[in-house]
Amino acid sequence: MSNTYELKAEARAQVGKGSARELRRNGLIPAVIYGDKKDPVSITLSRKDITLKIYGGGFMTTIATIDVDGTKYRVLPKDYQLDPVRDFVMHVDFLRVSKNTQVTVEIPVHFENEEKSPGIKRGGVLNVVRHTVECNCPANSIPDALVADLTGLEIGDGIHISHITLPEGVEPTITDRDFTIATVASPAGLKSDDNAASEDAEDDAGEEAEAEDDSEE
């Protein structure tokens, strides 16, 4: 699990579009803490601090502590909105978590041992079908990543979710099939060579048939 971090925040008395716009003009962003069968808490955060966390990686899978005027909340980011034009953070939603909280998160997939894949050594291309896998897991033990081992994979082979060792308590939300994570695909050049070889074989077969017809005449 990623290292936790702490953010300073202030309680937000006023809500609404006008208040939110004023906050953003002052380098702050509105946010809300909800869940755990308690009333939501409206807060303001430093845009700079939250932007650094979002673009630093692992934001959506890392438990954080938010200090709101001296009261601390353990939370997991659940959503954030970006300005569609200027791409800066507009709003963040945080979910309160406890030791018993179960969450649904998108966990990134990391691939290792490409150098031990015969298919990739021959020029095969790793075709990633899923860069993340949606899983249910305890909030206190969200893995940083799921690890897919490419050792021994030939061209045409694939990695399915059953090939990945999941940490205890982590389960994919898709349970009705052994879905594909990635495949080792043929490179374009090899496909072209295979097609050319197939066409040559067809031409040879056609020439042989014509020769047989000529001999019968």
Rank of each mutant, 00 (worst) to 15 (best):
L150I: 12
V133D: 04
G119E: 05
G119L: 08
G156V: 11
V129A: 05
C135E: 01
G119I: 08
N136R: 11
H163W: 10
G123D: 09
E114P: 02
G156F: 08
I142Q: 01
P138W: 02
H131R: 15
R122D: 12
D157N: 15
I120T: 10
G158A: 07
L126W: 13
S117H: 09
S117Y: 09
L150P: 09
L146W: 06
G169H: 06
T104C: 00
V147W: 03
A145F: 09
V125Y: 09
H131F: 13
A139D: 02
S117C: 08
S162E: 10
L153Q: 07
H131A: 13
P143V: 08
I159P: 04
S162T: 12
P108N: 06
V128M: 00
K121S: 12
N140T: 10
S117G: 09
A148G: 10
V109Y: 05
T104F: 01
I159H: 02
V103K: 00
E154L: 13
I164Y: 02
V125L: 03
E134C: 11
V128E: 00
V129K: 05
E112W: 11
T132L: 00
P167Y: 04
K116E: 14
K116D: 15
E114W: 11
E106K: 15
H110M: 12
V125D: 04
K116A: 14
N136W: 00
A148S: 13
A139H: 02
A139L: 02
R122K: 15
G123T: 09
T151R: 06
C137M: 08
V128S: 00
G124S: 08
P108C: 06
I159D: 02
A145R: 13
T151P: 12
T165E: 12
R122S: 12
R130A: 09
S141V: 02
D157A: 10
E115Y: 13
C135S: 04
G158N: 09
L153P: 12
I142T: 03
T132F: 07
N136A: 07
P108D: 02
E106N: 14
I107C: 07
S162L: 12
E106W: 11
I142C: 04
V103M: 00
V109R: 03
F111P: 06
V133W: 01
G124D: 06
I164E: 07
C135R: 05
V129D: 00
G158K: 14
H131G: 01
I120P: 11
P167V: 11
H160F: 13
P108M: 04
I107P: 03
G123P: 06
K116L: 15
V109H: 02
H160G: 14
N113C: 09
K116M: 13
V128K: 08
I120D: 09
P143F: 02
C137P: 10
N113L: 05
C137V: 10
T104Q: 03
L126M: 10
H131T: 13
K116V: 06
H160M: 08
P138N: 02
T104R: 05
H131L: 11
L153H: 14
I161G: 01
K121N: 14
V103H: 01
V105T: 05
G152E: 07
T151L: 07
K121A: 15
P143K: 03
L146A: 07
I161F: 11
E168D: 14
R122P: 02
S162R: 10
L150W: 14
E168Q: 13
P118A: 01
I107K: 01
G156Q: 05
P143H: 07
T151A: 10
V103Y: 01
